Simulated assay, not measured.
Amino acid sequence: MTLLQNEASDVVMTPDNIRTRKLPVAYNIGIAVAALAIAAAIVFPTGIGNWVLVVVLGVVFYLIGLQVIAGRIEGPRAARNRMWQAAIYCACVLAILPLASVVWTLVSKGVSRLDGDFFGSSMNNIGARDPNGGAYHAIIGTLEQVGIAALMAVPLGVLGAIYLVEYGKGKFAGTVRFFVDVMTGIPSIVAGLFVLSFWVLIVSPWFNNGTPQFSGFAASLALTVLMLPTIVRSTEEMLRLVPGPLREGAYALGVPKWKTIVKVVLPTALPGIVTGVMLAIARAAGETAPVLLVAGGAAAINFDPFSGGQQSLSLFVYQQAADASRYAPARAWTAALTLVALVLVLTIAAKLLARRSSLR
């Protein structure tokens, strides 16, 4: 035993005898290329799919080949680790591919009408054979409707979440959470029907000589109903993530509870709250059914959200996509690109504002 210990103590550990064998990068690339080639040889001659199926089958063949080759070079344990690591990367790529495809299609088809006429004119007096016409009226309608809805939904949603986290206890708070969860999954057309039956048919005749009237404000009410549950749930989760010692430290200094919420809790959770608000705004900006039911849509520009029908970008895309004119698809794609760009700009601006406020 002593002799074995002495011999073991005489062994010098060097990088050569502690380093395990690694799969060369060239082998990894070769496995990927061979997997895609095999998948293409199966899919294209048989006509069972397109390049999407080639990529999916290529990923499967790549993982199988990686497991076999890496098992011979690195051993079973290292091969399993490498295979699962590659599976995670491949899953990430497969998840990004549809998004990249949508963005590419949207940009490639939407740039055809990115001109001054599209952003400076409406569809008023534009016929099926007219190549002109734009979405100025739809952009104005979207900004007004979503803006009014945000002015109503954000304060209500944030205050509701503060109640549930900081004050809500007992059956009433549980009931509120239950209905918020139920409202999260309701179809948008239900919100539109609710506002149609309540505001358009019952309330609006009081202000219009007994005649029901479509309006952009009615669309804002429907969008508010859709935005509220998203804002409440996201804000509630962000407020729950605020560490308890922050509240306790403020209470120990004698700060009132309402001031602790305003000065400590809300600023700490602000980035997450802004994310939830922007998700709700993005959903509201892309809704078509409520606007169609209660705003009606309009071909002319209407700056007054409280009187007369009003258009939105999402409804404009729907109408142009269903139009028989050969110029309508280009207008629909450009309007869709404009809507996505508008939401992106608002999201970036809100993120920068929240980051600046949190740094202060």
Rank of each mutant, 00 (worst) to 15 (best):
V146G: 08
A135V: 08
L114C: 10
T142E: 04
P155W: 12
D117R: 10
V154M: 07
L159C: 09
G127H: 03
N132R: 14
S121M: 07
G157Y: 03
G147D: 11
G127S: 12
Q145Y: 00
R113E: 11
P155D: 13
D115V: 06
M152I: 15
E144Y: 02
Y163S: 02
G120S: 14
G120W: 06
G160A: 13
L164G: 02
I140H: 01
G134H: 03
S108L: 11
V146L: 10
I126T: 11
I162W: 04
M152F: 11
Y163M: 01
D117N: 13
H137R: 05
V158M: 04
S121W: 08
G120T: 14
M152V: 13
D130S: 09
L114A: 12
S108A: 14
S121N: 14
D117H: 14
A128V: 11
S122M: 08
S112D: 14
A138Q: 02
A149M: 06
R129F: 12
Y163C: 05
F118L: 06
V158W: 01
M152Q: 02
V146F: 09
M152D: 04
L159H: 01
A149R: 00
G157L: 06
A149G: 08
R129E: 15
G157E: 11
E144N: 08
D130R: 02
G127C: 03
A150M: 13
A153W: 03
I139V: 15
A149C: 05
G160T: 15
I162M: 08
L114V: 14
G141Q: 07
V165N: 08
G157T: 04
F118I: 05
G141V: 10
V154P: 02
G120V: 09
Y136T: 08
F118A: 02
V158Y: 05
P131R: 08
G134F: 02
G120F: 07
A138T: 04
M123N: 10
G120I: 11
R113K: 15
F118W: 04
P155Y: 11
S121T: 15
S122V: 06
G141I: 01
L164T: 05
G134S: 11
V111T: 15
Y136K: 11
L159F: 13
A153Y: 07
V154S: 07
